[in-house]
Design a protein around this nucleic acid. Sequence first.
DNA 1: ACAGTAACCTGTTTGC
DNA 2: TGCAAACAGGTTACTG
Length: 270
Amino acid sequence: MPELPEVEITRRGIEPHIRGHKVFSVISRTKKLRWPIPSQLNKQLSEQIFTSVTRRAKYLLLNAQAGTLIIHLGMSGSLRIVDNSVPAQKHDHVDIVFKQHTLRLRDPRRFGAVLWTKKDPALHKLLVSLGPEPLHDEFTAEYLYRVSRTRRVSVKEFIMNSHIVVGVGNIYATEALFTSKIHPLRWAGKVSLPRYRILVSAIKQVLVQALERGGTTLRDFTHEDGKPGYFQQQLQVYGRAKQPCLVCSHPLRAVKQGQRTTTYCTQCQR
DNA sequence: ACAGTAACCTGTTTGC
DNA sequence: TGCAAACAGGTTACTG
C-alpha cells in the first residue's frame, strides 16, 4: 500500500470530491481498525461541510467546521470515490456518504485508522511529535546530521523513524540508501555530513519521482479512480534480492531490520 | 532518551 | 496438489 507519494496522490484524487461537499451520513461496518472507530461519527459529521483535505505525514486530514477526520491507510488501506449505488465489499469498513457519491475506505489488514478530533489536528497525540516533512525545506542534511550524532540505530531504521522524518517507508528508504551508496546497517551516528547531503537529496528525489509517476503499485495500491501507479518500474533494489545489482552486477542481499526487509548491494553500499 | 521486540490483521506467495 | 510457513507498502506500545 501506501508510502508518502501514494498518500499524497490519494489526497489529490479525493480532494475535489470532498472539499465543499456536505456529508449526508457516515456508515461504519467495523468497530475498530488499529484503534476504535469513533462511535459517534455519523452524528458528528452529518450536515458538516468539508473545507479542505490536507496531509501531515501519512495522515489524511479531512477538515470540517466542527473538527477534523483523521485517516491513516496503514499497510493495506485505500480510499475510493464511488457512486452511492455501489454495494460495499468485504473489507469496506467506512463510508462517508455525500448526496450522490461516497468516500469509501477499504483496508483488508485493518492497520489503518479513522479518528475524529475537535482541536487543531497538529496537536493530536499521534501528530504532535512527528518529524519534518521530507519534501519541506527544513528537512536538511544538517538537521539529520545534528540529531543523529549519538544514535547507534542503523541509518535505515533512523530515516524510517517518523519522529526523525516522516513519510519515508520501506520501499523509498531502501531505494534512497542504494542510490546514496550508504550501507543500510551503518549506525546513523557514523554517517558524515557530506553523505547525509547525498542521502537527503536522494530521499527528496525518489519521493518526487514516485509522485510524478503516480506512485508505486504493488498488489493493491490503485488511484482513487482505480488506475495504477508506475513507479514500480523504476525500483532498483527493492524486491530484487539475489538478482544482480544494476550498477556492479553483484547479487543483491536481503536482511531484516526491525521486522522489515532491506535489500542492498554489499559492493556498492558502504 | 534510546534500542529492541512484539503487537495489530488478512491475503498472497513460497517451499516442502 | 495441498498445506503450512513466510511475507507484505506502517506505526505504536511496551520492556529494559
